[in-house]
Design a protein around this nucleic acid. Structure first.
Lengths: 247, 247
DNA sequence: CCGTACGCTGTACAACGTACTCCGTACAGA
DNA sequence: TCTGTACGGAGTACGTTGTACAGCGTACGG
């Protein structure tokens, strides 16, 4: 694999070289390839993007595996395209004019919706930016939501970025927990399979808080009444923490 | 693979059935296997745990690949053992008696140290608890750091868990960003490889904030002066957000 | 009308996890 | 002391992965 960053970026932004007109016409469209890959990843559950295989995608597209390599340099670049396309497809509420708390809440909700639509998105390494058009548009939109807060709190650009990262981190983490409880399905079965060993081993004398709090948190997460209490807790804490920056 | 949760838990807690005394003695120690696996994962960088292979570990231990399957049911369980061992090995400062801000800061710093020692630890899915002795001890220790805050703010057990999750999420996210800038190594080279395309494509008219803030944040992360500013920002926000719960 | 650039594919290789089968060891019971 | 058997370990093999390479056929530029 080349893994040439410039080539990957050119692919993401669709600024490939003209690609001479000789030979047979392409049978596929890059956007179709990415759309099908996204569907496959979605079908693959939380690890759908990691589990996305070139061969499976080729089968889906009715094409030989190696054919995909004329569209995309390799698996890694394909994943980047899928991620960026998901970012590009996010609905972005126009919240200009609203208060900063509402704007930040909207951003958080949009990201929560993303993670619900594409469970694998929560496993994308946030430390490795894709720098594609989708991610850039998302970044621009979300930074705009901080306009009022940045003014009120006197945030410079570095802090504005940190504040956004802060908000997204908490949202992603909440999505991961939510997915786990959803995957678990029958919560009783999950615990039932583990209880025999845990009862033998989780000594309330050694781990008083862990046993008590773990049981409470586990029960709360699985209660249908309050599925996203941790999420709302985190969001409220984020907003309060940022509010403390204001004068 | 069996992937029997009870078997995995028994393995983690070392409460395997006695295992009759017939036949040759075991040539390896499970703890050694896990220690070597940890070393291999550490050497593998950020994706070291995902990239840890049974064959490579067997080679390292001077043993046939299949031999490892008499110690561990499969790759997944091996990974769980590695993770739990890393949690178990974390130094845990005794901060009882200190103020809650100091105690929470200590917890955050311990986790940051973990992520620095084992970059792969930041990629462990926090939604899928391992429930081993290491994780349990870590959980107990960290919950204890919230004792004073829970009293002052009237946190119930569910909120206490959520608050801890909140703190750890922000820490993990900061570690991921830090790792990225560390991996990047020569920051100039990273940007240089991407600049030609980005300059062509990042229109400051379309993405005014993204271009401006992105540049500032990128520069700040790579400045040696202020490597963990985002981390301290996040931690301060967490503490302020939690402080708002008091009275 | 040809040469050539290009889309596409079949084959092949290295690496992976792990199921199955066998071998030799060393203890339990006689 | 002898023997049956439980058990640790290893060799082989299968199906999977990403992708390098070489060839084939198509359709346009000259």
């Amino acid at each position: 694999m080349a893994t040439d960053p410039a080539r990957t970026l050119a692919l993401l932004w669709r600024v490939e070289q003209p690609a001479g007109t000789r030979g047979p016409r392409r049978g596929l469209d890059l956007d179709d390839v990415v759309a099908r890959a996204t569907a496959l990843a979605d079908a693959g559950g939380p690890d759908g993007l990691a589990g996305l295989s070139v061969r499976a995608l080729a089968r889906e597209l009715g094409v030989a595996p190696m054919t995909l390599y004329t569209y995309v340099p390799g698996r890694e670049e394909l994943a980047a395209l899928v991620v960026d396309a998901a970012y590009a497809a996010m609905p972005r509420r126009d919240t200009s004019g609203l208060g900063w708390r509402e704007r930040l809440t909207a951003v958080a909700e949009e990201n929560l919706a993303l993670h619900r639509a594409h469970p694998w998105a929560a496993r994308v390494d946030p430390g490795r930016p894709v720098l594609g058009p989708g991610e850039t548009a998302k970044y621009e939109h979300e930074l705009a939501a901080f306009d009022e807060l940045a003014t009120l709190a006197g945030l410079d650009d570095v802090d504005r970025d940190a504040a956004l990262t802060f908000l997204l981190d908490v949202t992603r983490a909440a999505a991961l927990v939510e997915q786990h409880t959803a995957d678990t399905g029958d919560a009783g079965a999950w615990w039932a399979a583990r209880a025999p060993v845990l009862e033998q081993v989780l000594d309330p004398g050694r781990f008083p808080r862990a046993v008590r709090v773990g049981a409470a948190a586990g029960a709360a997460q699985q209660s249908a009444r309050d599925p996203d209490r941790a999420w709302r807790f985190g969001l409220a804490r984020v907003l309060d923490g940022l509010a403390a920056l204001i004068g």
